[in-house]
């Protein structure tokens, strides 16, 4: 069963990778790349939920912080490597400490509040060079990276992330992390070191979120306050309705993004209503997620 899951993951990513190659169309490649980034982002969220029982309702901040720090650092003339390390540290500490100190419910509220605060604060971030001002509502620009490069990097990262995500469940560490997700006190009573498990879950989630944040910002060569939007934060939550395995999360991330984009093209006003409807109906489908809330 588990070997089948690994094969499914490989086939899923390989199929999605091949379609843009076969169609050889700029927009298709661009859209599939974006969907791959959304999948990495969703799996990053999954690391927190599946391996520490802490679903975030503000995961957009884990995507936005590295993107913003990279853009600011680039605009100030520093490299883009240091902000990656800084954002790794910041997001990791945030998730690790919050998951240690807060229960499931409180974690959801805390992550939600943080992402909204960043969403509200981001437009006020302005950098000035003499007469020129950058940032604010418009955000920051980043150097252009060829789409083919982002496409290859995104799918490579998605493949590695998805494999680690599912493979972890088969390892001893993954089983112990699963125990922490299901019942912290019961795991503790067996001798599981809760803080160590949450350390790994937060670390893996942060690593993938930072990768997704960088790919996202370089895909657009631009980062704006919308990266912290509720729309992005609730995306993984909605995807999780379909299950928490890597192939399901990957396929559903692609499907949801395509559906949202299609809706955006057909009736641009209504695509957030679509998200809102899914959120309202979420408890019917996503019962497992909060069953022990």
């Amino acid at each position: 069963m588990k070997a089948i899951q690994a094969v499914t993951t490989i086939l899923a990513v390989a199929t999605l990778f091949t379609i843009p190659l076969l169609l050889d169309n700029y927009f298709v490649t661009w859209l599939f790349t974006l969907a791959a980034i959304y999948s990495i982002f969703t799996i990053s969220w999954g690391f927190l939920e599946r391996y520490s029982g802490r679903p975030s309702l503000g995961h957009a901040s884990a995507l936005g912080i590295p993107a913003y720090l990279a853009a600011i650092s680039y605009n100030l003339g520093f490299g883009i490597l240091t902000p990656a390390l800084v954002s790794l540290l910041v997001i990791f500490l945030l998730y690790y400490l919050l998951s240690l100190k807060l229960g499931k419910k409180e974690f959801i509220f805390a992550t939600f509040v943080i992402s909204i605060l960043l969403w509200v604060a981001a437009p006020r971030l302005v950098l000035g060079y003499g007469d020129t001002m950058v940032g604010g509502e418009e955000g920051f620009f980043l150097p252009h990276v060829p789409l083919k490069t982002i496409y290859l990097l995104s799918f490579l990262t998605l493949f590695i992330t998805a494999m680690i995500y599912d493979f972890l469940a088969r390892t001893g560490l993954g089983i112990k992390m699963g125990a922490v997700r299901d019942d912290e006190l019961a795991a503790k009573a067996l001798g599981v070191k809760i803080s160590r498990m949450k350390f790994f879950a937060s670390l893996l989630s942060t690593l993938t979120a930072v990768a997704a944040g960088y790919l996202y910002s370089f895909q657009f060569s631009h980062v704006s306050p919308e990266i912290f939007s509720v729309e992005l934060s609730v995306f993984p939550l909605i995807v999780s309705i379909g299950g928490l395995s890597a192939p399901r999360m990957t396929f559903l991330s692609f499907a949801l993004l395509f559906a949202a984009r299609a809706l955006n093209a057909l009736a641009p006003q209504f695509h957030l209503v679509f998200y809102a409807a899914l959120l309202i109906l979420f408890p019917i489908f996503g019962r497992r997620l909060y069953a022990q809330g």
Partner: peptide
């Protein structure tokens, strides 16, 4: 207090893995 989403085997294996 079982680990509800895990199999019976995995439930018991948690302690052994330590």
């Amino acid at each position: 207090r079982p680990f509800r989403e895990m199999s019976v085997f995995e439930n018991v294996m948690v302690g052994c893995l330590l």
